[in-house]
């Protein structure tokens, strides 16, 4: 059974009482909430995800709850609870669906230490993954959404899950979270209605989720090796620029952006080194024009591996390499 086969009323009832168990990638998540907007968010953003009725066990137990005391009624708030932890301050109630996403991200990043986890978007095309690792506000999710609309398979827009024995990337297949100006930018390209409603948020300029395609969810049990590691940075007015990065330096950047590299010790070192052994190249990438950026990534991934290893700026005449 998948979420779209459940009526909204059934989802509301199940969320309020026993919880709804959905599978996202390798995780079984039990979500509980008395809030009707969480049922709506599941119906909209998780329509193709499998529901596991009567699941005896879940990896993640997340509750999205209304604010306590007067915050139930006056400027109502919402908070989330993962097992006994409350990871974030309460937020305005209108951000309840975003709280669900943040809570699930937090749970994965803090619990799933049988993976090496890096703050990165991961997309797959042609059997190889593109890892986009960057700090917040670098345009990572915008790029991820733009590539997803071009048919790339999204593994995650936030957390790269790297399997410890073989450094394969494992899909999480969750919705992409867009913020601010990128929402309308992506909505303009969205012919399939994948971008959900915008929830007002003065801090982030609004939040919207991009629903994963059916094929993305159907393929969420299929891992893939890395192809390229790119460190993108959105800079207004900047021409599209890239420069190759030695793997040793890419390693340090990925380790810095990891949630649990230090925790895993020698295993983390060996897993990350093996990931970069498999990578065909690493780049720094700056952009301001989304269409140019998408074109650059599609050309990068469409190259056969033997050519890709020797990509140089001269082979990309319409784009410039920073000095």
């Amino acid at each position: 059974m998948i979420v779209s086969q459940c009526s909204l009323n059934a989802l509301r009832h199940q969320l309020r009482w026993g919880g709804v168990c959905i599978r996202t990638g390798p995780f079984l998540c039990r979500i509980q909430s008395p809030l009707p907007e969480i049922a709506r968010a599941l119906a909209d953003s998780y329509a193709h995800f499998p529901v596991i009725p009567e699941a005896p066990f879940a990896d993640i137990h997340l509750r999205v709850l209304p604010g306590r005391g007067l915050r139930r009624w006056i400027r109502p708030q919402v908070f989330c609870q993962c097992d006994t932890e409350v990871p974030f301050n309460p937020h305005p109630r209108r951000l309840a669906p975003a709280m669900l996403e943040w809570g699930l991200n937090w749970a994965v990043a803090n619990l799933a230490h049988w993976y090496l986890m890096i703050h990165a978007a991961v997309l797959e095309r042609g059997g190889r993954c593109l890892v986009l690792s960057a700090l917040a506000e670098s345009g990572k999710s915008t790029l991820c959404a733009a590539l997803a609309l071009r048919g790339w398979r999204v593994f995650s827009d936030e957390i790269a899950l790297i399997r410890l024995p073989d450094s394969q990337l494992v899909p999480l297949a969750r919705p992409i979270c867009l913020k601010g100006a990128s929402i309308e930018l992506i909505r303009q390209r969205d012919c399939e209605g994948l971008v959900g409603p915008t929830w007002p948020d003065p801090v982030r300029g609004g939040i919207a989720l991009v629903r994963p395609r059916r094929e993305t969810v159907a393929g969420m049990e299929t891992p893939a090796p890395v192809g390229w590691v790119v460190f993108p940075k959105f800079e207004p007015g900047c021409p599209t620029q890239f420069s190759p990065l030695p793997k040793a330096l890419a390693f340090l950047r990925l380790a810095d952006n990891s949630f649990n590299y230090s925790l895993l010790g020698t295993t983390g070192f060996q897993t990350l080194a093996a990931l970069l052994d498999q990578a065909q190249g690493c780049y720094k990438f700056r952009y301001s024009k989304l269409d140019e950026a998408v074109l650059w990534f599609e050309r990068l991934m469409d190259r056969p591996p033997e050519c890709s290893a020797s990509v140089s700026s001269s082979e990309w005449p319409e784009m410039s390499e920073p000095s």
Binding site: K247, L249, F251, L252, F269, D277
Partner: peptide, 17 residues
């Protein structure tokens, strides 16, 4: 100590367990 390097690169990663 664990070492890792890639062909053609001048630097070596050293992990101190």
């Amino acid at each position: 100590l664990k070492f890792h390097a890639w062909p053609g690169e001048e630097f070596v990663l050293v992990f101190h367990s």
